[in-house]
Amino acid sequence: MSAAPVAPERPAWWVRLDWYHPEWTLGVVTVLAWAILVLAHGATSSGVVPVDGMPAMPGMDHGDAAASTAPTVSAWATGVGLWLVMAAAMMLPSLRTAMRTTSLTSRWNRRHRAAWLLAAGYLTVWAIPGLAVVTVLSVVPWTPPVWVTGVLLLVAAAWVATPVRRDSLAACHRTRRVPGQGRRADAACAREGVRLGLACVGTCWLIMLAATLATHDVLLMAVLTVVVVAEKVVEDRRRRLPAWTAGTLVVLAFGVFFL
């Protein structure tokens, strides 16, 4: 009498997580980026760091302490770094679908490499407006009044209705299969990240600018992140999302004006 076949042992949950959701590393990086933002916000609120609020940019007038602070290279570099942390916290989660798709359709031993090369290309694009904003604020000290953020949010809501924004968002949703091996594959992943980054800037530049100028408001940044991620990641009834986005941005704008 032969023995009954033994079912193969089911791998541990974390093994299966890596099998089916290789983009889990994105979650780790996002959590770290938000932790830095929140900690930095706490530090600046308590006066430990002279730059008041996150992501406060060097040169921005942040009250008495900052008003006397002359722009320095280190402050500029810190500003750029903080911008990238903010971009990672707010924008990288929206890359989840693209990173997962690229991972699962790449050679197994390149899954994480492919996804993070894509993310690197994406963040490189976001670094460019960051450099511009930080540089401008370094040489032109300015504390934006709160209403500026509100106006930007209203303009962002109007931007949602434009064909350019609609096409940019559609481009954010598109993914392409990349070559499997070698430098050609690396380059293709980075190029795909750059393409997605450009599409994302076209979609979210006003939202990001509003978040940047709302120097004291981590909560606003969190809500805007949810809006951005929803538009990029949610597949179910996607065409309704722009209306929700515009409505949310209007509500946030009025919140900024009146709260």
Partner: peptide, 8 residues
Amino acid sequence: RADTDHGG
């Protein structure tokens, strides 16, 4: 089409 989500 530029306004649709698909790559192919």
